[in-house]
């Protein structure tokens, strides 16, 4: 049993799991690639989600309906199908694409739809009495949205956002299904090479993903403490 662990946790294997063939062949892979896709997708989808979520919360039909179509269209399809679309559709129109880019685009658009729903829910969760109070104090419409609704909505949606970020970090593992050298693929290769220690190999993978995702949750949870947030970003 311990013997198997020793065969999985060799320095060479660990290096491949962490950075892929970065040093030997110059190709990034492993945990580093997973984190790369994950954080880029998180950043992109937060941007998309913020814009679409605000559109979704607006009363204007011209903004509301396209946002709704986007959200419903991307939320009701498996991410794997979106990855295949992003990988096989552009070449049909003569556009060059790469595996990395197609996974990134699919993951960003998919998570963006979910984050839009979260943002919309956060905006709706601000109590109407707040708006009335702000209007009574003489704030304009734009000031109300910027200084009253959005800050409260932000803190209200942090727990849901943390959950979604973890899901999108987990979903980067789909990259291996179109042959990208991410953590899962490298683990699978190591498992296939050793042949006799699948339990240990996959447990190693699970533990690595677990540490990353737990860390991500904890980071977002730090922001939920408003005093800490203010000190960190607003210097007050």
């Amino acid at each position: 049993m311990m013997d198997n662990w020793a065969r999985v946790w060799t320095p060479a294997n660990l290096e491949r799991l962490l950075v892929g063939d970065l040093f030997s062949r110059g190709q990034m892979g492993g945990l580093l690639l997973t984190l790369c896709i994950g954080f880029l997708a998180i950043a992109g989808s937060t941007l998309i989600g913020a814009v679409v979520g605000i559109m979704r919360a607006s009363p204007r039909k011209a903004l509301n309906i396209p946002a709704m179509l986007y959200v419903q269209g991307f939320r009701n399809v498996p991410l794997l199908i979106l990855v295949f679309w992003a990988y096989f559709l552009p070449p049909a129109f003569g556009i060059q694409t790469s595996k990395f880019l197609s996974v990134l685009v699919a993951l960003t658009l998919f998570t963006g739809a979910y984050i839009a729903e979260i943002v919309q829910g956060g905006i709706r969760s601000v109590a109407p009495s707040n708006l009335e109070a702000a209007r009574a104090l003489g704030l304009g419409q734009r000031q109300i949205h910027l200084w009253v609704v959005l800050p409260q909505a932000f803190f209200n949606m942090l727990p849901a956002l943390a959950g979604r970020y973890v899901v999108s970090m987990k979903n980067t593992s789909l990259a291996f299904l179109i042959g990208l050298m991410d953590l899962t693929e490298i683990g699978k290769q190591i498992g296939a090479r050793l042949m006799t220690a699948p339990v240990e190999v996959y447990l190693t993978l699970l533990i690595m993903y677990f540490v990353v995702n737990r860390g991500l949750t904890m980071c977002v949870r730090l922001l939920e403490n408003r005093q800490y947030f203010n000190r960190l970003f607003l210097r007050i």
């Binding site: 593992s173 789909l174 299904l177 683990g187 699948p198 339990v199 996959y202 993903y209 677990f210 995702n213």
Partner: peptide
């Protein structure tokens, strides 16, 4: 709950299949 929620479903599927 923490383990199941914080690890990718694909890896869990591979884990149960191969082990």
């Amino acid at each position: 709950i923490e383990f199941a929620r914080n690890t990718p479903p694909v890896v869990q599927i591979l884990f149960w299949y191969f082990s």
